[in-house]
Design a protein around this nucleic acid. Structure first.
Lengths: 194, 194
DNA sequence: AATTTTACTTACTACTAAGTAAGTATTTTG
DNA sequence: CAAAATACTTACTTAGTAGTAAGTAAAATT
């Protein structure tokens, strides 16, 4: 009943998520995970019968995270600036720090070699991410702490593309300065304090 | 002396480039190319001993293209708006039309599973692309046909990230509308006519 | 206490990948 | 015309991949 002395399933998911962000869906194998956890190949298959199952669980967890953040912000949209700084913070502390890129960009790159169901999940993740950003931008402009032209949804899409690309170029150039330059540029354009 | 009735090497490169943009470096095999060209596996190895050689040749060609465009623009920078429209046009007519993404984004995603030499080439490609965009933006602002805050190099980097990300999300969502929305938003912010 | 379920291991299969060595027909060159 | 380089094919090796079937020890359930 109580969690065993070790939650292998959770460890698999967590390691797979790291590996996915760093190397992509096709960039890690069951063997990689098994070795790192000190178990055998088949143990991973016990928890996730197919790699597709593992991939879907992975994206599912990310969607859950975005969904929760959206709910949280919608329930209490008093500080859009803090929310967008947290968004930038993800790229600073997660992507740049671990030399990985965001899931949407990774999945977009691997799109044509990934199972159909994962494609659908990836689309949903992108939609939800866009929705969250649009909510933040809309609240920011309404409260007079952000400026931009056009619809919040359009600006959110553009921002999402910019930050996804920034994570990629930051990794490509192995230079956190790239990320900082883009964040500074975007902040300037949104009228945020530098 | 004259090119034989068939230039297999060029056909390999050209097909490999398409496959790379659509499926990534690890997303296609020598077998894929061989079958499509009606030759055997080893024939590809004859022209490109290793896959790394093929990959390097591929990126080399793209670098050459960017370099030529930069030279061309530097030699005759009278129409920055046309130049940036051509840049947008690449994403419309190449990426969106063929459901592929740009090389820098693809390489950034596959970075950690790609040979070292390709990483270096990819970095150089990104640098050159940024240089070209910076030249266009700088000329555009100098001539009063574009507006933006900050350094041209910073704005160029941000634009490159935005467009790379836009190609990816466009493919992910299978929706050219995504690309058009981002181009419209960016154009608005740069003060270009819609 | 007996039974069933959980969480694995052992030992495999089937497949695909890049890469290679040796041979062959066709051009090109001296 | 002979020699050599070109552009392959045939047949293979090596290595890595996801996935599976059958067995096992420990824990939970009845």
């Amino acid at each position: 009943m109580r969690p065993a002395r070790r939650d292998t399933r959770a460890e698999i998911l967590s390691l797979a998520e790291q590996l996915f962000h760093a190397r992509g869906y096709h960039g890690f194998s069951y063997q990689d995970i098994a070795q790192a956890l000190g178990v055998k190949n088949a143990a991973i298959h016990y928890h996730f019968a197919s790699k597709e199952d593992l991939g879907l669980a992975l994206i599912g967890r990310l969607r859950e995270l975005v969904r929760k953040n959206l709910e949280l912000f919608r329930g209490n949209p008093i500080d859009p600036v803090a929310a967008i700084q947290a968004y930038f913070g993800y790229y600073r502390n997660h992507c740049a720090a671990t030399h990985s890129i965001c899931a949407v960009g990774m999945l977009a790159a691997e799109l044509s070699t990934v199972p159909d169901a994962m494609r659908l999940q990836a689309r949903a993740l992108a939609d939800e991410m866009r929705e969250l950003l649009a909510a933040i931008l809309e609240a920011g402009r309404a409260r007079g702490v952000m400026q931009f032209a056009g619809e919040p949804a359009a600006r959110a899409l553009s921002l999402m593309c910019t930050m996804g690309g920034a994570a990629q170029v930051t990794r490509l150039k192995d230079s956190p300065e790239v990320l900082e330059t883009v964040i500074a540029q975007v902040s300037r354009e949104l009228g945020l304090a530098a």
